[in-house]
């Protein structure tokens, strides 16, 4: 029973990382209409920058998280302005942006390899909250609890931002129809910049935390998060952060339990079959609104 609970918590923490990354990915997809292949590299770069802040500059972990998050956001801004803005102004649609994002994926992945000298690095165990806490008979990692809490805070925060604030209304308006939003007095360019930054920062946060939690800071980090974060977005519905969060957590828990009680070889098969079932049977995800139609 204790093993069961410990594993459930392990899965929850793991899934929270998928969800946190997925929120950023979904935000770009729903608001900016871009299937961004380069999104995983934001997480890799955030983790790499965070690592060097700890390792070279000797600053504490919270600073590394902050710098990493900022790096993820700024990188997303730069990519948006270089790769997506020129196409946006020419109305080239989703296709062109997909290709430029692939170009940036190739570039940033390759540069990340150089930045870590092709190695997989790890935050020194002493530099971040890596200890264990005893909750009754259960052992729980401090960082796991932090990750779980961070996801809850980010989900609520971003959900409120989108649903309750003027900025969120503007974001939804731009996601619906950029031209109409501009006619309605929304500063579309500002909204796009803010969305790109927010998405990069959220996924960057997932990157730094995942880099510390899994002892893996390298260009492979983002790719792993991308594959699972993507699944969370599809199952949860890309236009609702709550759906992404819940779907991500569920995927993490299912993954851990399938590996523990069924078979590791079938683990990913399980995840992606679930994905397929959702796609065919409930194509708008957990919270997807049936009336929300995008052109």
């Amino acid at each position: 029973m204790i093993l069961f609970l410990e594993q459930a918590l392990n899965g929850w923490a793991l899934g929270s990382l998928y969800a946190l990354f997925g929120i950023g990915f979904g935000l770009v997809f729903s608001t900016l209409g871009i299937l961004n292949a380069a999104h995983g590299t934001y997480a890799s770069w955030a983790a790499i920058v965070g690592y060097y802040v700890v390792e070279r500059a000797g600053l504490p972990f919270p600073v590394a998280v902050g710098v990493g998050v900022a790096a993820g956001g700024l990188l997303a801004l730069a990519v948006d302005q270089i790769a997506f803005q020129p196409l946006r102004s020419r109305k080239a649609g989703m296709l062109g942006a997909l290709i430029t994002s692939i170009a940036f994926w190739i570039i940033l992945d390759s540069l990340a390899g150089f930045a870590t000298e092709q190695q997989s690095l790890a935050f020194p165990a002493a530099s971040f909250p890596s200890g264990m806490i005893d909750i009754g008979p259960m052992k729980v990692g401090q960082l796991q609890l932090i990750i779980i809490a961070v996801l809850i805070v980010c989900t609520i925060g971003i959900h409120l931002l989108i649903q309750k604030t003027r900025l969120g209304t503007a974001m939804r308006a731009v996601g619906w129809n950029e031209v109409a939003a501009a006619l309605g007095g929304v500063n579309a360019r500002m909204v796009i910049l803010l969305t790109a930054f927010l998405a990069g920062a959220t996924s960057g946060l997932a990157g730094v935390l995942a880099g510390a939690a899994t002892s893996n800071v390298s260009f492979t980090l983002g790719e792993g998060l991308m594959l699972k974060g993507f699944a969370a977005v599809v199952v949860g519905g890309y236009d609702d952060v709550r759906g992404t969060a819940i779907a991500g957590i569920l995927l993490g828990i299912i993954e851990v339990f399938v590996a523990q009680y069924v078979s590791t070889a079938l683990r990913d098969g399980f995840t992606y079959s679930l994905l397929l079932i959702f796609l065919v049977a409930r194509p708008r995800g957990l919270f997807g609104s049936a009336g929300f139609v995008r052109a």
Binding site: V234, Y238, Y272, S273, L276, L279
Partner: peptide, 28 residues
């Protein structure tokens, strides 16, 4: 038959998901 009912954005995501599933199927 399975995917054409999806709208364009979902179609792209769904097809990407199918690529991931293909690899798992080939592996197993």
């Amino acid at each position: 038959a399975a995917f054409l009912k999806l709208d364009s954005h979902w179609m792209a995501l769904a097809s990407l998901a199918l690529v991931l599933i293909t690899r798992v199927t080939v592996l197993n």
